[in-house]
């Protein structure tokens, strides 16, 4: 549920500090292959002390209903992400000619 708890009038709401450095276990990104023939896809993340435990925890957290046949775990710190604020993908926005539907072909030509 939202389980959203309303503020009690007159009661102070706890201010949370951002960027708190956890001294806990490293964060792992979890990738699951739903069935043979499909790629592993990102499903979420979890904390674990080592890779083997991360795989065990990923199994319990993300495949309780047989959602997967294989699991990868990758340390989150090893993922190098694109800078989405710089329009890295902008050059492709105005190139519709790279799509098949850009070209009108008469129906008589048949399957093409």
């Amino acid at each position: 549920m939202t389980y959203e708890v309303p503020d009690v009038p007159g009661e102070e709401t706890e201010e949370v500090a951002f960027g708190f450095d956890s001294r806990g276990w490293p964060l792992w990104e979890v990738f699951v292959r739903p069935k043979r023939g499909l790629s592993h896809a990102h499903v979420g993340s979890l904390h674990a002390p080592d890779a083997e435990t991360a795989v065990q925890n990923a199994r319990d957290s993300y495949t309780r209903r047989a959602e997967g046949v294989s699991v990868w775990v990758v340390p989150s710190t090893e993922i190098f992400a694109s800078d989405d604020s710089e329009s890295l993908f902008e050059p492709f926005a105005d190139k519709p000619y790279r799509h098949p539907t850009f070209y009108d072909i008469p129906p008589e030509v048949g399957q093409l």
Binding site: M1, Y3, V5, E14, V16, F18, F20, R23, G24, G44
Partner: peptide
């Protein structure tokens, strides 16, 4: 995990719960 993407750690959330500073339903 979703909350952690906003820059708060699991440990801190748990501590806030234990201290009664964050609530539950």
């Amino acid at each position: 995990s979703a909350a952690e993407t906003l820059g708060i750690s699991r440990d801190e959330m748990q501590q806030l719960l234990h201290d009664g500073k964050q609530k539950y339903s």
